[in-house]
Design a protein around this nucleic acid. Structure first.
Length: 425
RNA sequence: GGAGAGGUGGCCGAGUGGUCGAAGGCGCUCGCCUGGAAAGUGAGUAACAUCCUAAAAGGUGUUCGUGGGUUCGAAUCCCACCCUCUCCGCCA
């Protein structure tokens, strides 16, 4: 959510800033609602103050044993007036809040201009794609003999699911373990185990609700839950409604979790293989930082995700997402893309964002700034460190041998009981 | 799932219809005392919204788990829900 004070004081400035994303803010409608809100709230505050004073007078009068009959009549009429005004105020505030929750974050000045992914800017490239002596297979073809089973998954759950067995399942687990250990041991993260079912409030805090409900799986029951689309949701919500001590910052959390996405808008996209699934695993990184540190933290966090790919010796590149391609809650985002030989191109494997105070405001996540002594909003960042399913795909494809076996990256070997090559399940 | 107890400020805890944003304590901040510290002692110490303002100051409102209700007036009475604890049942 954007700062409501900013929306009042510089609405056209905000509208101009959001235009960069291609987002159109209806300035006139917004201003009209705001004007109404102000008028009705002033009236409501006035009536309440009057009612409070009157009620107090009744108390004093009764204490002295005087007749308070006249005051009671006044009070009755005030209560009646208040009821109507409060109802109107409530309706207006709901409308204003709805409008506010629909506004995306304002972009950082360093975000490149552009409408869509074609305008994303490559920041750097690491590693050189391997030259194959043979025609490289894709992970589906490779996985067929090595324990990746889409047919079985289809029987159980339908499209966009995978079953892994044997060494393939183990390699998947090895990747997650390796990433967790790296971030905990070398990058100073605190490991967290978090709920995979969350309520709507948590999702509103991180920005998925109310606007993107169709991307989520809702679970029936009372109370209803949503399946998390990323561990960013529970991890960032760890600081909801908290006032953090300055010496406790930054907080750095890492969690391995499954992620669940309806992929409602992705019909026909990446239908083959494990690239786009309803359920996939991810190791997620979250930083809670002082506002002045957040852009340094974004570089740091992105570097931590990159280290995973470097240790796995996978070629990748880093993109600065352009204005039109940056997500709703983010002020700035770097995507990491890993090389996939079968597609002869780089594919997203991590997304690292600085949300500044956008999520913190929705979460009421604050810290006590020693400079002012006041609670102020923190900045939140999140990034994949990295997507496990896609990392598995990248390892299979980049480490494949001509005979259809797959070499195990040396950093994963210890997690595979010393195995260096996967030839069968 | 059944029975019971409870949810009050950064923390503990008093408060059963009016003068309660809330006693007392702890913690914290500033001062006094001290060579310095501890002890002692004095003062201060919630958040949010909104109005006015360049800002500060200030005004008003809201907040005692959450939402509704009763009342001129609710931390206090009524209803629903959520959460925590104890016991029982079931279970990994």
């Amino acid at each position: 959510m954007l700062d409501p004070k900013l929306l009042r004081s510089d609405l056209t400035g905000v509208a101009t800033a959001l235009e960069r994303r291609g987002f159109v803010l209806d300035v006139a409608a917004f201003a009209a609602w705001e004007e109404q809100r102000k008028a009705v709230q002033i009236e409501s505050d006035r009536l309440r103050a009057e009612r409070n004073a009157n009620a107090k007078a009744v108390g004093h009068s009764k204490a002295k044993g005087q007749d308070a009959g006249a005051l009671l009549v006044v009070g009755e009429s005030l209560a009646e007036q208040l009821q109507g005004v409060e109802k109107r105020l409530e309706a207006i505030q709901a409308e204003v809040s709805n409008l506010q929750l629909g506004l995306p974050n304002v972009l950082h000045s360093s975000v490149p201009e552009g409408r869509d992914e074609a305008a994303n800017v490559e920041v750097r490239r690491c590693g050189v794609p391997r030259q194959f002596e043979f025609l490289p297979k894709d992970h589906v073809a490779l996985g067929e003999r090595l324990g990746m089973d889409f047919e079985a998954a289809g029987r159980i759950s339908g499209a966009r699911f995978a079953v892994l067995t044997g060494n393939m399942a183990r390699l998947h687990r090895a990747l997650a373990q390796f990433m967790l250990n790296l971030h905990v041991a070398d990058h100073g993260y605190r490991e967290a185990y978090v709920p995979y079912l969350v309520h709507g409030t948590a999702l509103q805090g991180t920005g998925q609700l109310p606007k993107f409900e169709s991307d989520l799986f809702a679970v029936r029951g009372d109370p209803g839950f949503y399946l998390i689309p990323t561990a960013e949701v529970p991890l960032t919500n760890l600081v909801r409604d908290q006032i953090l001590a300055p010496e406790g910052l930054p907080l750095k959390f890492v969690a391995h979790s499954p992620c669940f996405r309806s992929e409602a808008g992705a019909a026909g996209k990446d239908t083959r293989g494990m690239i786009r699934q309803h359920q996939f695993d991810k190791v997620e990184l979250v930083h809670i930082v002082r506002p002045e540190d957040s852009y340094l933290a974004l570089e740091e966090l992105t570097g931590h995700a990159e280290k995973v790919l470097r240790d796995l010796e996978l070629p990748y590149r880093v993109l600065a997402l352009c204005a039109g391609d940056t997500g709703f809650s983010a002020a700035k985002t770097y995507d990491l893309e890993v090389w996939l030989p079968s597609q002869q191109r780089y594919r997203e494997i991590s997304s690292c964002s600085n949300c500044e105070s956008f999520q913190a405001r929705r979460l009421q996540a604050r810290w006590r700034n020693p400079a002012t002594g006041k609670p102020e909003l923190v900045h939140t960042l999140n990034g994949s460190g990295v997507a496990v399913g896609r990392a598995l795909v990248a390892v299979l494809e980049n480490y494949q041998q001509e005979d259809g076996s797959v070499a195990i990256p040396s950093v994963l070997s210890p997690y595979m009981g010393g195995l260096t090559r996967m030839a069968s399940t």
